[in-house]
């Protein structure tokens, strides 16, 4: 979009927004045909609820709580995933030994380990962190290993002919060379992590009977099962979606900044 003229950019924006706006208008018309006390969500009521929740501060604090968990879990998983990925990518021996374990756990969805996590760690933040870390780990690891495999072997040889030590080759040749794949892995991992936290908080909310474990997922569950408010659920869903979009855009921006050499 960078090289497009102002007119082109607005016309693309208009094109992208037309259908969603149309759908919302249709939704509004349908909602206005319903009887007054109906609990069904309607656009105007959703907006009003949004205003209330923002005013009360509950929406912001819940979102931040979820984000905090995601960031922490993601950070731990990324450091582990990148370190292990670099090691596995550069040493066939390490890879052969770890592959069976990794490949056994990879297909197991983060949600599937939730019951064990709750049993071991309770229904609070540690469980949420564990789920997020587990979910983020595999995309980072796998993309790091892939990134290492795509590093031109000639670069490593060239480094050897310059008297560069193996450790420095790992940090100054392999790591930068694998960086595009690594950043892709972290971006995917962040997306998965965000999805996982919402689901985990929903499930934990259910298990703890709507108890105060916090987070937007848990808030959504409460609006579903206890203070039934469909408009509030729509607000939560929208927030989850918008945050996911923003995270993705942020990561793409960081990618561009860290990899200026991509043609």
């Amino acid at each position: 979009m960078k090289n497009m003229t102002f007119d082109n950019r607005t016309s693309v924006l208009v094109r992208n927004l037309t259908l969603p706006v149309l759908l919302i208008v249709v939704w509004h018309i349908w909602a206005s045909t319903l009887p007054a006390g109906s609990p069904a969500p309607a656009p105007l009521k959703v907006l009003q609820t949004l205003g209330d929740m923002l005013g009360a501060g509950s929406l912001l604090s819940a979102t931040l709580q979820s984000l905090g968990r995601v960031v922490l879990g993601f950070a731990v998983a990324s450091v582990l995933g990148i370190a292990l990925g670099l090691l596995m990518g550069s040493s066939p021996a390490v890879r052969e030994n770890l592959d069976p374990i990794i490949e056994s756990f990879r297909p197991i969805a983060p949600m599937a380990i939730l019951p064990i996590a709750i049993l071991w760690l309770g229904t609070g933040t540690p469980t949420a962190l564990a789920i997020v870390a587990y979910a983020s780990f595999f995309p980072v690891l796998i993309n790091t290993v892939h990134g290492v495999s795509r590093v031109d072997r000639k670069l490593v040889l060239a480094a050897h002919t310059m008297g560069i030590s193996r450790w420095t080759i790992l940090t100054r040749v392999v790591l930068p060379g694998a960086l595009p794949s690594i950043l892709l892995g972290t971006r995917l991992a962040m997306g998965v992590a965000w999805t996982a936290i919402i689901a985990a908080e929903l499930a934990v909310g259910a298990k703890s009977g709507g108890g105060g474990s916090g987070g937007i997922g848990q808030m959504m569950f409460v609006f579903y099962a206890y203070n039934i408010d469909l408009n509030a659920i729509v607000v939560c869903m929208a927030v989850v979606g918008v945050v996911a979009l923003l995270i993705d855009q942020l990561f793409r921006l960081v990618e561009k900044r860290l990899i200026p050499w991509r043609p």
Binding site: L157, H160, T161, P176
Partner: peptide, 18 residues
């Protein structure tokens, strides 16, 4: 083993793209 006393120039340059 390799070393900086015997420098190599490769056909496809082997420059670090970053």
């Amino acid at each position: 083993g390799p070393g900086a006393d015997r420098g190599v120039m490769f056909q496809d340059y082997a420059l670090m793209p970053w």
